[in-house]
Each structure stands twice: as structure tokens, then as C-alpha cells.
Design a protein around this nucleic acid. Sequence first.
RNA 1: CGGGUAGUAGCGCAGGGGCUAGCGCACUUGGUUCGGGACCAAGGGGUCGGUGGUUCAAAUCCACUCUGCCCGACCA
Length: 584
Amino acid sequence: MRMSNMFSRTLREAPNGAESKGYEYLLRAGFIKQLGAGIFSLLPLGFKSTKKIENIVRQEMDRIGGQEILMPVVNPGDLWKESGRYYSIDKELARFKDRVGRDMVLAMTHEEAVTDIARGEIDSYKRLPLFVYQIQTKFRDDPRPRAGLIRVREFTMKDAYSFDRDQAGLEKIYADNYRAYFRIYDRCGLPSIAVSSDTGMMGGKVAHEYMYLSPIGEDTIIICDECGYTANRQIAEIRKEYLKEEEKPIEKIATPHAKTIDDLAEFLDIPASKTCKAVFMVGSFINDRTGEEEDKLIAAFIRGDMEVEEAKLQHAAGANSLRPAHEEEITACGMVPGFASAIGAKGDFITIVDESAAYSNNLVAGANEEGYHYINTNFKRDYDGTVADIASAREGHLCPKCGKPLKARKGIEIGNIFQLGTKYSEAMNCTFQDETGVQKPCIMGCYGIGIGRLLACLAEEYNDEDGLKLPITVAPYEVHLVSLVKDQEIAEKIYEDLLNSGIEVLYDDRKESAGVKFADADLIGIPIRITLGNRSLKEGKVEVKLRSTGETTSYDISDLAKEIKAEIAKERAKIEDNIVEKNL
RNA sequence: CGGGUAGUAGCGCAGGGGCUAGCGCACUUGGUUCGGGACCAAGGGGUCGGUGGUUCAAAUCCACUCUGCCCGACCA
């Protein structure tokens, strides 16, 4: 590619709103261009990188037996009504009507579409297992896109789907994907960890998320350095110590102005762990057959020294979504915000009690009367409810596996794998006949990687004060040929030679000053830079500089292509040698 | 969806009722320079986000509206 003819140009200054380095450089180097909130075009350099990432993904999917297909972005709404997600997913699912008024959706994932195909293909256990994938556009109308390609509305995703006859089959392909994902990130050069995760709108039971740890991440990951336990905070468990003691008689006491746990603990001169905190949410419960929606108050109780994790609470209550409750909704059930407990409450609401509160004795809790609390309240004796783990794991809490203190880190989700089970196959009647003639639902799994987000994370990981320095496996070109010579003929010849040797070359043939060319080369960050200068050329030499290390070598022009191929192989080896097989 | 902030040339910004709307970079032409964002000279480019209003006069004041960004709610 000749830079004199390149569609995109570099920018000297960062466009307004590029707050992270990676995003800024992707914009300035001309990899991407914003079209609207959360909507980006890929320019030639960004598209090249994206294709490289896609090809790595493709190779690894093929390697574990994946068959590439392509499904439509536009799906009939009826299909999504079958799975129930037409109703259970809110505005994030973009809907429209076609010319005859049929409900249509822009697919945000493809469980429905693939299950529809599979139910037509799969009749016998002999057809299983099956594993397909696609690399395709998704649209999710995110309420708040941000940080460039990190969180967007339209994006390219590799999504894969497996169909098995039993759990053992699913677990095998799940483990294959688990390994393949690490190989993909390793081959892209992106550090990654796998964490146990929530299943969210996908449904199913077992799931892992792959995270790139970064301060700009929006997910919080709980990590145990000691035993390797890792989980998204949404589901991270902690070892809880219960304050067991002899039950004492309940007693109402005056606690004027003690509305918060801190106030209360200070007023009574007790630790927060001797109190019980109430958190009120309203859950939306959607009937996914009819789309009918019902709101219900959820009262969550947890020991005063802990916080409620909303995702856990949502699961425990079986709600589709949660929002904070309004004061009237709480008082309608006989509870008084600031002085609330389940004791003496009435009306239709769901009570979820964290283990910390349920298994500790003699806690101070609200008396549902302005200015009063009960001391020595005990679960079961004084109030009832569903016991669940709804505690939010924080740095310093104890590891559920080994009991050592946990750490909290920020991360960006770069992929996920789900054991779906039969959620979609049952809802959509995707069954097979086993040896005994019995119809059974296929056991499904799904596996996703956001391609653009991966590029964004790579840009975040690989940059310095001069620009990007993507690894050679994902950089748009292998070699940047910078010509500083007056007589372009020799440069043209070298360019041709390199191309003929099968090397991917970005050729700066522009009539620009050396400084401009070097600055642009650093900004775009192609791994190997060849500089053609008048002086060294007279001696038959050219300079080769690595973007990653700054290391410079001088080569004879006569065997340049051969030497460059060796350099490329070395750069590739730097990445490929770091591929580590990681098993589930 | 709530709070904040901003829309003026490709990018970054200034101007804040008055005559041809500026600056830096970028762009065009000519010349000099030529290994780390060169210099000189001459040029080209803008419905001042949109609509409506106030006024003799609006980029500037007012109302509404659209869009971007940040924080939160939210989210794979």
C-alpha cells in the first residue's frame, strides 16, 4: 500500500472525546472513524488489523472443528417470540416492522437463528455433535456507548454455537473453546484471564468470561492470588464468617436520627457486623410466553458490614431486571426506609436474606417505626424469607476456596463462553431422537468474541507516547518502508522486491519531510520499519528498526527481502512462543 | 433515562448584537530545504448543529429541537 494513495490520513491532534490512549491512537492513526454514538467505520488500516484478528479466530475455531456459516442480521420477530427474548429483552433489542407490518429485529446474538436452522438439520443422535460459528455484525442498542470501540452499539462478533446429545458432549466442546480462546488471545498478543461469570440474558448455568485487565474496564473482577480463584464480581463468592451466639430476646429501642448503618453503629457503639441492613429494589418479572410484565418489591437483607450485589439479588429473586424502589413502594408494604426490616412488614413482596444475616444472631434491625430499631433480631424466629448469597465481594474479603484475602481488579470483557443447556432447544423444539427412539432436546453452548473490542484492547495494551505498536500478528502491515531518498526509483524497486517476496508493506512514498514520515510511522506503529536514506544507500545499506523495542540494524540492500523475512519470523516468534495451553 | 458539558473550515480552538468571522495545523501553487512533526511567498475552503423568534441588524439574545462527549442509571 502506498501512503500517497491511502484513504485515511493521520491526525496531529486527538479529536475531542478520545480519553484513553488506545482510542486516541486508533483515531489519530486513521484506523477508525466515528459515525455516531457507538457506531464506527473501519478505515483501511483498522480493517486490515480486524481481518488479521478474524483470521486468527477463524483458524482456532476451525482447529476445534468449527464450521463457518453466516446468518442474517435481520431476524423475524416471531423467532425471538419463540425463545421469549422478544419480550424479556428491553430496548437493547432493536425492532422494526417490515413493509407488511411483520415484527422484525436486528439480531444482537444468534441463538434463535441458529437453533431454527439446527432443528431442521438435526433429527438423529447420529447428527450430533455439531459446532458452527460466524463472524458477523451485531447491533445492540446500548444505552450508553463509550470509550471508542470498547463499548459500541454496532460491532463485529465471532459467535459460535454447539449442539450435543448430552452434558458430557457439551463439556468437551466447552473445554475445547476454553482452550481455543486463550490461544486466540495469545496469538493476538493480548493478556487475558478467564473468570467465572454471570449468564445474563443468555440463560444457562456455567459460563466464563475472558477479561483483559485494565483500569478503563467497566467490569470488576475478584481475584485470589493465592489459589487462582477468579470471578466476575457479579457472581464472585466470599467466605463468610457468621456471628453465632445464643439467641437473646428481641427488644425495641429508640435510635433517633440513626438512618444509616454508620449512624446506627456509632449510636449504639457496636460494629456494623452486628446490624442488619435493608436494601429495596423493584424487580420486573416478565412472562416470556405472553410478554406480560409485573413489578414486585424485593426486600433484601444483609449484614451491615456487607453490600448487596444486584446481579445476585436479581437471580435470587428470579427477576428480569431491577431498579431502586421508590419510598411509597416500601411504605406500602409496611416498612419504613431508614428503619426497615422484615419484622412486622405486610403485603406482597419478596424477601431475600443473605446468609450473613440469616446465620448471624442477635443483629440490630429496623423496627419499621421512625426513630426505633430492634436489638437481638434473629432470622426464622423474628422474620422469614429466602436465604441466598447476595453479598458483593470486595477487595479484602476472603477467598471462598482458600480463605486468603481477595483482590479486586477492573477488566474489559473480551469474550465469553456459556453452557446454555436446553434453554433454546426446548423453547424452540430443537430435538433429536436417541437410540431408544426418545425425542430429546439438544444440549447447547454458545461462545462469543467481540472482534472490535479486541482491537481496542490491543491498542490499549500496545502503545507508547509516540503511538501504537501492535504485535505483528495483528498489525495492519508487517513492514513500513519509509523512503527518504530523492530518486524514487530505487525505493520503488525495493518496494516491488518486498511485495514479490510476499511481505505486507506499507510504503511511505509521500513527498513529506523525514520528521513527518517518522512521526506517522511511529503513530501507526507497523512492527518493522525500513528506512531508505541517501547516505546509507550509497554504501548499499538500509536501516531496519523495530517499533516494539527501538532496536536498529543495518542490512545490505542485496539480501534485504531475505533479512526482512527473518525479522518477520522473529517478530512472529515473540508472540507465538508465548502461546500457553490452558485447560479448564 | 437523570446530571454535567460542548457543537464556529478536515482536526484542535478563539470570537459572544454592527460592515468582507479569525488563529494554529492540514490543503493548493511557486521557490528554498531534505534522517525526527522545515522555511518564504501567494492562495482556496465555513448554511457559525437545526428550526422559529426578538431586533434596523443575530455566530452572538430568547425558545424549542437535534447531535457528540463525560458521570450515573444501564449493559454481553
